[in-house]
């Protein structure tokens, strides 16, 4: 009895909504810290280092799996709860008056669905490219060598630079033109000597460039930026109600605690989405 109650009962579903929701708030804070690095001038290297860390560190990997599961669980449970709640009132009222509850609290499912659509497109645009795209660009740097500008691939070890014209893409012929190319890229980011086939270096995927190109795109950049800002607005409303609501669901409500939770929740709901939203706006309008 007790065991199945922890999965199936109305209150238990609320615990899971609250726990996953609060975990996602932590995720938001972490993700925001990473994104803010995009605003530091000439920060491509740091940003790409950060992106590499986030996709390779085992502890971060564990956290990211927890995040995927939380989003799925939160979204599915939230939609199921909303369907159940609609069924609890098969015949609606002819006249309603919304004065006794807030807009956000009445529209959590709509707001959540907007966020879900955003997360899906966001993952296609950035996450999937970072993880699976064969044509993901690698980070390059232009350096002046003896008065000539030359483009180099940047290795993950400090001071590793490889002239781009010396590097062949995977499957590309090594001998084109006068001299055979010295290096070849394997497994998307590994740089190998072309003769001996020993790994020399790892290269950075250029998420920084992908992000800037996305929001600066001449044709669609403005729409992407507006869409991003609107999604953050939905997130703000979702958190405006959701943050304090999660504590109530978990049973943490007392005259001492609750005013502080409500205050922090509202601050979180404004500050976090706002900071997320200004990043694409600045990127888009920066020259």
């Amino acid at each position: 009895m007790a065991k199945s109650a922890l999965l199936k009962s109305s209150i238990a579903k609320k615990y899971w909504m609250a726990l996953t929701g609060l975990f996602l708030c932590l995720f938001l804070a972490g993700h925001l810290a990473g994104n803010l690095q995009l605003l530091v001038p000439n920060n491509a290297l740091n940003f790409n280092q950060y992106a590499l860390f986030m996709t390779s560190n085992p502890a971060v990997k564990l956290l990211s799996y927890l995040t995927y599961i939380s989003i799925l669980f939160h979204a599915i449970d939230g939609i199921l709860l909303t369907i159940q709640n609609k069924k609890a009132r098969p015949i609606g009222y002819a006249k309603t008056d919304g004065s006794s509850s807030s807009f956000a609290s009445r529209n959590m499912a709509v707001l959540g669905t907007i966020i879900l659509v955003f997360i899906a497109t966001h993952m296609v645009n950035f996450w999937a490219k970072m993880h699976f795209d064969k044509n993901m660009p690698l980070m390059t740097k232009t350096i002046e060598v003896q008065g000539n500008k030359q483009v180099f691939y940047v290795g993950t070890q400090v001071g590793q630079y490889f002239p781009v014209e010396q590097v062949a893409k995977e499957g590309e012929k090594l001998e084109q033109g006068m001299m055979p190319k010295q290096f070849v890229i394997k497994n998307k980011t590994e740089l190998h000597y072309s003769q001996a086939d020993v790994k020399t270096a790892d290269l950075y995927k250029d998420l920084y460039k992908i992000t800037l190109d996305f929001f600066k795109d001449a044709k669609y950049g403005l729409y992407f930026t507006i869409g991003y800002v609107l999604a953050m607005l939905a997130l703000a409303f979702h958190l405006w109600h959701g943050f304090q609501s999660a504590f109530q669901s978990l049973g943490a409500n007392s005259s001492k605690l609750t005013p502080a939770i409500k205050f922090f929740g509202k601050a979180f709901a404004i500050v976090v989405p706002l900071l997320f939203a200004i990043i694409p706006v600045i990127l888009h309008f920066k020259k």
């Binding site: 009895m1 007790a2 109650a5 009962s9 109305s10 209150i11 579903k13 609320k14 709860l81 159940q84 709640n85 069924k87 609890a88 009132r89 006794s100 509850s101 807030s102 609290s105 009445r106 959590m108 109600h241 304090q244 609501s245 109530q248 669901s249």
Partner: peptide
């Protein structure tokens, strides 16, 4: 446990903390 189980069986919905009831 029993009161909540009975509440669910009767077909009442799930609280989303809108606070309208309290008002």
């Amino acid at each position: 446990l029993n009161m909540v189980r009975q509440m669910d069986e009767e077909g009442f919905g799930n609280c989303t903390n809108t606070g309208a009831c309290e008002i």
